[in-house]
Each structure stands twice: as structure tokens, then as C-alpha cells.
Amino acid sequence: MPTRRRALLVILLLALLGLASLIAALAAGSLPVAPAELAAALFGGGEGVAADVVRELRLPRALAAFACGALLALAGALMQVLLRNPLADPYVLGISGGASVGALAAMLFGLPLVFVHGGAFSGALAATLLVFGLARGDGSWTQTRLLLTGVIVAAGCGAAVALILSVAPERELRGMLFWLMGDLAHAGSAWPALAMLACGILATLPFARDLNLLARGDLAARALGVPVARLRAGVYLLASLATAAAVTTAGSVGFVGLIVPHLVRLAIGNDQRVLLPAAALAGGALLTLADTLARTLFGPQQLPVGVLTALIGVPVFLFLLTRSPKTS
């Protein structure tokens, strides 16, 4: 049983890790910035090229990466409890599929970036509402029904994405592929994602113990006083909004939402009161580091960050699968 003190310690350590990842993201790049210069750029109103690069380019991108990673990990942890399945991820219910269709459709018509972001967000919400509405259709809101509906909607979105890719003009294809793999080069402002992250954490923490019980079955949870129907609807909407915010900012970055809650769970157990904030911090740190690698590894050539998270994620995940045979 994690005590409150141990929980705070874990969260403090992960917060330091997150801070370290942000500092690394600000310092590293084709123009290396020394610690003193970094401090001056951030706090001292330093001037010159280094300060501009840090403030104008790297800081917004690092914050966006951190917020998106945290949102995806939080959404993943929530989806895993909601579906009572440790293999669920933020995209399992078709959210990223809907976002992809929206964003790629905007790109297909050559619309400016703001429409791509708008398209992604509306697509994600449309897929969410579609799955929610269909899965509730007969009143029985079981996770099997939810999962199946989500998988089918995701498959439909996949077909629509393939259609868009096949009719898209040559010059748009590269941007579309980068978007589909997740890319922070066009992140824009980090503030919507950061605000969503703050809302997500503040909204879930008071109900974290209720979520612990939700993982043990609807009837058991209800018998212990958990308002299961309302909680599930709330968790679903919140995880969807968190995913939509992340996907809108960074495209569909894979594996963060699946791997991070898993790793954190292995390290500190499944108490949602610790798991949710810890997963958010670890996810933020992971995506910030991955994005820093993505733009420095073959710099100035940039990689889509989703490729890196997948390259890290797949072996880790396969290792976890072979290690723990009990996964469902």
C-alpha cells in the first residue's frame, strides 16, 4: 500500500525528471546553449541569438511536448481503468482516427495550420461522441461494447485516411505522413494543451480512489458507494478531451499513452492516486526527451517524434508482454 508520503516522494522525483527533460530540451540542438546562457535567456532577459532560439523556438516546443506526453499518458491510464484492460491506450476508441481524418482533410484542401488544428480537434470530438452515442445505444454500457464500437470507428477512420492519402497531391503527402506519425514541429502554442493538462489532473485526482474501485468491477464499486455510470461517462469524456488536445497539438504520437502507465504501474503499483499524476509527469518527460532526440539525432534533419516513441515503445512493450503473462 503506497502511503501518502511515498506517493509524494514518487511524484517529487518524477517532477524533477520532468524539469530535467525540459532543461535538456532547451539546451540541446544545432545551437548548443550553455547553462548560464539558458538561465539568462529564461529569467534574466538575456539577448542575442541564443536567447531568441531558447525563448521563441525551443521553449514553446518543449512545453508542448511535455503537455502532450503528459496528456497522452494520463488519457492512457484513464482508458486502461475505464476498459479494465491494461492494453488499452488513448487511441483505442478511435479518437486519433477521427483527429487524423479531420487534420488530413484540412491539409488536403491546403488550408492554413489553424484549420488543421481545428480539423483535428473536431475530428477527435466527433469520433468520441459517435462512439459514446453508439455504445450507449441500448443502455448497457459495457466495456466490451465500448471497445468494439471504438475499434470499428477507428477502422472506418483508417479507411478514410487511406482514401485521403491516395487522392492527396504529392506536395501534401510528406506533411500528412509526419502528422500521422506525430510531429511537434508545427505544435503552435503550448497553452491549450497545458491548460487541458491542468484541468485533467485537477478533475481526476479527487476521484482517484473511486477509479481504484472501478478497476475491480462495476458491481463491487457501486456496492462501495461509487457512482459508476457518472464516473465512467466523466472519465471517458475527460480522457477523450485530453487525447484530442494532445493530438491537435502534436499529431498522433504513438505508444506514450500505452507504455508510460504500464511502466509506472510496474514501478509503483496500481493506486490511481499515485499512478495518474506520476504517469502524467513521466509521459511529459518521455515525450520531451524523445522530441529533443528527434530534432538533434540527425540534425538539422528532423524526425517525426512518433517514430522515436514507437521505436522505444515497441521493444519495451514486447518485453513487458513476455514478462507478465497475465494481461487481460
Binding site: Q80, R209, R216, A223, L224, G225, K326
Partner: peptide, 25 residues
């Protein structure tokens, strides 16, 4: 209190943690 017929253990948990869920209310 209700003892349901089946028990769902989707995630890992210790015996003590599981007994402690009774304290929730």
C-alpha cells in the same frame, strides 16, 4: 455491504490493498 459472485482483478494488487477497498466509504 455486498459480496458479489465473481471478483475482477484486471490489474495487479496486493492482498492488503484489496482488503482495504472495504474502507472506501
Amino acid at each position: 455491504g455486498l459480496l458479489p459472485q465473481g471478483h475482477i482483478d484486471a490489474f495487479q494488487s496486493t492482498v492488503l490493498e484489496t482488503a482495504l477497498i472495504g474502507r472506501h466509504p
